[in-house]
Computed example of a mutant assay.
Amino acid sequence: MNSRKDPEPAAPPLSREERELLEKASIVMQERRDTGLDGLVGGLDSVILATGTDRLVPAVFELLRYTGLTITEAFFDTESESYVLGLPGSASLIVRSREGTGNPFYGANKGRLTGSLPNTRLETFVFTTPDLLQYIEIQKGRGVRFLTDSPLESASCSFIQTTPSPFTGNSLGFIEWKTGKKSYVPRGGTAISPDLAKPASTHLGNIGVLDHAATRVRAQDRLAAILEFVSLTNHHYDFGVYVRSLNSITSVARREKEDFAMVFTSGIMPFSGDGESGPTEKFIQNYGTRVHHMAFRTERIESTVNSLAKDGMEFLLDIVGSKEEGLKQIFSEPSRNTLIVNEYIHRYGDFDGFFTRSNVEKLTEATGKQ
């Protein structure tokens, strides 16, 4: 097997846009150091995914059926019903119901194909912090806006989240745990016994932690979206893969090598029409700026995918990549309940990169089927 060393960055010389992004990202990271933000944001704690009340239970069961996650907690609060799904070593997934017109994400959810699911999206990425009040004070001084004036308090944690980004439609949350025993039940919430069981399917044990998530952003907002994320977290911009034939760039921000990575996929040129703009910009026209997929690290990927298919999962393409290239990946069809695609990804032991250019091109092309 060949060891792939950093296969993903765009080949030199870098484009003017890429040089500008790297320079500005360096400035943002220096500002993080100067303002005392470095070290105030840790890894990804959890992800909040909202769906309509009638689709909540189907969405949760779908995740139990097609990932390694299990239910760790469930509760009611004044606004919704929520299920928490987890796996050791992975960020948790909080699936909640959302209805009504007071949804701060409502505008970002609009697209040509989202009319029947106006409240459905992966809304918030929640990161840990050792000192939430200090983080809030610094970021408010820099003009960052939050959905609440002060943190939401519970017996287990303090939590706050930003207003939805004008570039991604996503919010970033920050949580400080007060106790060793974690519980997401908010103050005034009521814990309940979940009435859903995980299927006893052996292949689900091959599906592991949340590896990365990918948000689709408009071409003209790529730089701003990445810089915003870097300024709010302890991630850094790593590299971009240009697929010019499909008018698409896949950009990766990472904290440390084994940590959750945030991926941004955008057009190279802004949308000008369905026929010529490529699958990334067309996706945004159809669904709005939003998270396109969640990727789960997967062992025995061929047999696991075969078993998922036998259990009813449909895929946008066949497995791409090879052991010789160091990486294999596949996209599922998007969920009818969450609009999210599941990616299953396997990196071989001596693979020293994150993506391969050929895989990115094939996966990007497959999104045109949505």
Rank of each mutant, 00 (worst) to 15 (best):
N2W: 07
N2C: 04
E20V: 15
L21A: 13
L22P: 12
A25S: 15
G39T: 12
L44K: 05
L44C: 11
L44G: 04
L44Y: 12
S46H: 13
V47R: 06
L63H: 09
T70H: 03
E79G: 07
S80A: 14
E81K: 12
L85S: 07
P88L: 04
S90H: 12
S90G: 01
S92R: 13
V95L: 07
S97T: 10
S97A: 02
T101P: 13
F105K: 00
G107Q: 11
G107I: 10
G107M: 11
A108T: 09
R112W: 05
T124G: 01
D131T: 11
R142S: 03
G143V: 04
V144A: 05
L147E: 06
S165W: 04
F167M: 11
N170M: 14
S171P: 07
G180W: 04
R187A: 15
T190F: 03
S201G: 05
G205N: 06
G205F: 02
G208K: 10
V209Q: 01
A213I: 11
T215L: 07
T215M: 01
T215Y: 07
T215K: 05
R218E: 15
E228Y: 03
T233Q: 11
T233G: 00
N234K: 05
R244S: 04
R244I: 07
S248P: 02
E256P: 11
K257V: 15
M262S: 15
F271P: 10
Y287F: 09
G288R: 02
G288N: 10
R297V: 11
E299C: 03
E302I: 10
N306Q: 12
N306H: 07
S307F: 12
A309Q: 01
D311M: 08
L316W: 01
L317Q: 06
V320G: 03
G326T: 04
L327R: 10
Q329H: 05
R336L: 13
V341I: 15
H346I: 12
F351H: 10
F351P: 15
D352V: 13
F354G: 12
T356F: 01
R357L: 01
A366Q: 03
G368C: 02
K369A: 06
